[in-house]
Design a protein around this nucleic acid. Structure first.
Lengths: 126, 126
DNA sequence: TCTTACATGTGTCTTTTACATGTAGCTACC
DNA sequence: GGTAGCTACATGTAAAAGACACATGTAAGA
């Protein structure tokens, strides 16, 4: 089974593991990291696990996501050759991006309540 | 934009609405409903919104999901012509399905903690 | 020189989801 | 007895999202 998609269950010791991830969670995670301080892609890649847990985001998908956010005007970027090493593209959050982050926070709060109701109902007749 | 996929943002009053749903949440919702009592597809379709919120599951996808669960031995089914109306396929949870529901509950609990950490960090510098 | 780490990408396939449509039995009503 | 409408199950298709492989180039150090 090559190139398997975003399934919640994963092969692990001969079984499937349930992950229960929030859809597109990498997006609000990026927005939050960028609100704290501007950063370049590779830096974000290393800091994302603080928010997403062990699940590491694929490099390629991260850069695609960043470009998508920029096309929608949610982040802005510019080449930064000031520091050592290869040139970096430094991303920063725009006001529109900050508003989207606020919407994400509200949605995540509602998601928390939904999941809490589910778990309560699950425990009821355990 | 026809046949748009499971994006977190949705067109709504000229903007995109963030949903922050848990991936494949319909699966644990089905398992929980079936643990409470055996049921047929159409019945489950009407009771699912109790758990998933306003977001209703597509009929076609629901039947596909049920067949998938049956192929994996997580639910069992049999035709039921006893009640009025067209014949129904009555689904019931298997022991394997009950174990999967337990794994989902654990995963959802971890998801709650991840999201709580995110929201804390979001509120820190609001 | 060769390797390793940093940094930014593209190609391509599978899975998941949304939405439209198809089929058929049962019931009620005229 | 015909037909309208509801119930119930099912397939077809396309787009979004994610997984993974791979390409390109810079720079530091053994």
């Amino acid at each position: 089974m090559r190139g398997r998609g975003p399934r919640s269950r994963r092969h692990h010791r001969g079984r499937w593991r349930v992950l229960a991830r929030v859809e597109r969670f990498a997006e609000p995670a990026l927005l939050l990291l960028l609100r704290e301080r501007p950063a370049h892609g590779y830096d974000l890649l290393e800091r994302l696990p603080e928010l997403t847990g062990e699940a590491r985001v694929e490099m390629g998908n991260l850069y695609r996501l960043l470009r998508g956010l920029e096309e929608e005007g949610l982040v802005s970027s510019e080449w930064d050759a000031s520091s050592a090493g290869p040139a970096k593209r430094r991303y920063a959050l725009t006001p529109a991006g900050e508003r989207l982050l606020d919407h994400w926070a509200e949605a995540l709060h509602r998601s928390q309540e939904r999941t809490a109701r589910f778990l309560e109902r699950y425990e009821e007749r355990r």
